[in-house]
Design a protein around this nucleic acid. Structure first.
Lengths: 236, 236
DNA sequence: TTAGTTCGAGTCAAGTTGACTATAACTAGC
DNA sequence: GCTAGTTATAGTCAACTTGACTCGAACTAA
């Protein structure tokens, strides 16, 4: 009784530590088909626990930055990327996420544009993986990625998130390819186009995409809000 | 330079502390109209900062409980309630939420059934307020409640959350009253009924609600999953 | 018995969605 | 320069959904 009580107070003296993790999505051409697919960068664990396994970019929360700033700093430090969309995902706080000490991780998810993603740092310990072909990750990071994918699919169906995976100008077919890559199913080009033309945030430009093999498609521009505002009402 | 650097390491030595807050919704009859409206319990701050102001129930995260357990313990301790629905809301981690020290709060939101809510403890320092008539709350708790309300409205429109504000048996008109209270607008009874009859999770019982002033309505039962499962895919 | 109210089924027009057809505009290869 | 192949874009049509509305059924209060 006495020793157990002492144990409790001892453990409470070391409060759960706080960390940030980020799931960073970008479109890259598939090696096989060449069509755009979802990829994400992982970092290799260079110390225990889970030494050698791949893990989400992340780190401790420092005292003088907000959660979002910490996520965005982490993203920049590990991959050199600046996200076009960044949103909090979930706080993971299970008791046994980390074998040694108790860690509560606040996970963020981000989208980066392909021009950015092409410049991303890659090294021995930082590498991009196809989102649908990850192996076993460190900690509960497989669950975090699964949840981020679920959230991405939901947000996509709902609204305005697809454009943050594309550059400033895009064709309607490119938007459709984003949907097909993320939702993993074919969409009717004509019907998809009809829906997009009905959304007011997509503005027709006078330009056409030249250099393709067939009829040049018109270029469009997204005029909705950028994805980092704190008041875009998908984040408080 | 030296003193600033020393300052940084000193502040990092005291990491941000972690707390849990819960927004607890229940239906109670309005004092004026008698129709069901949204209420939530608040606790009075008995120490600085914000001493005397009302705040969300909450407290520090103890070492040996998961986030959800901590939320549900908090809820039980301050109000005596057992929620029928409990879900993580958001992690609030702004730098100046608390004037003294840095606190990251993981907010949860809960729904309790009216039978439960009627038994809730109330005292000098715990009181229920109408969700649309809160005064100025401590910390950033007004923003947290606003976000919880937004989330509740969204979930309501989407799906299955309304039944957790009702008892085991209910009439379709009661469900409509929940929607009207939360969304704050009138709904067409006939159309609403048509939609509910189309959802398979609502099962017709043989019973009727007796004792009303008019034609007795049929009683229904919700057969979907309860709201505390970790795998109901609105929580990872 | 009657007036008043809610319950519950049904109708209708407007809008949306998915499957499909047809034409326009461009390139590659001959 | 012509033709075949491919994508872009517009349009049609039936099935389904949604909102506004009507009407009879069933009960209570007086």
């Amino acid at each position: 009784m006495f020793s157990s009580s002492a144990n409790v107070s001892e453990r409470q003296a070391a409060p759960p530590s706080l960390a940030i993790s980020t799931v960073i999505f970008a479109l890259r051409p598939s090696e096989t088909s060449g069509r755009p697919t979802l990829w994400l960068p992982l970092v290799r664990r260079i110390r225990e626990p889970f030494k050698g396994l791949w893990a989400l970019p992340g780190g401790p929360l420092s005292h003088d930055e907000s959660l979002q700033d910490a996520a965005s700093r982490n993203l920049r430090e590990t991959t050199g990327l600046a996200p076009s969309y960044l949103e909090q995902l979930y706080a993971f706080g299970g008791l046994h996420r980390s074998p040694s000490q108790r860690v509560v991780s606040i996970a963020y998810w981000a989208l980066v544009q392909p021009t950015e993603a092409a410049l991303a740092d890659e090294s021995e310990n930082v590498r991009w993986f196809r989102a649908d072909r990850l192996g076993e990750l460190a900690f509960d990071h497989n669950a975090i990625v699964d949840y981020a994918l679920w959230r991405l699919r939901n947000k996509l169906a709902y609204g305005s998130v697809a454009y943050h995976l594309l550059g400033e100008y895009f064709t309607l077919a490119q938007v459709r390819e984003v949907y097909e890559a993320v939702l993993d199913r074919q969409l009717d080009p004509a019907n998809f186009r009809r829906q997009l033309k009905a959304t007011p945030e997509i503005e027709e430009t006078g330009e056409y995409l030249q250099g393709g093999k067939h009829r040049p498609p018109r270029l469009y521009r997204y005029t909705g809000r950028p994805g980092l505002d704190p008041d875009n009402r998908s984040t408080p």
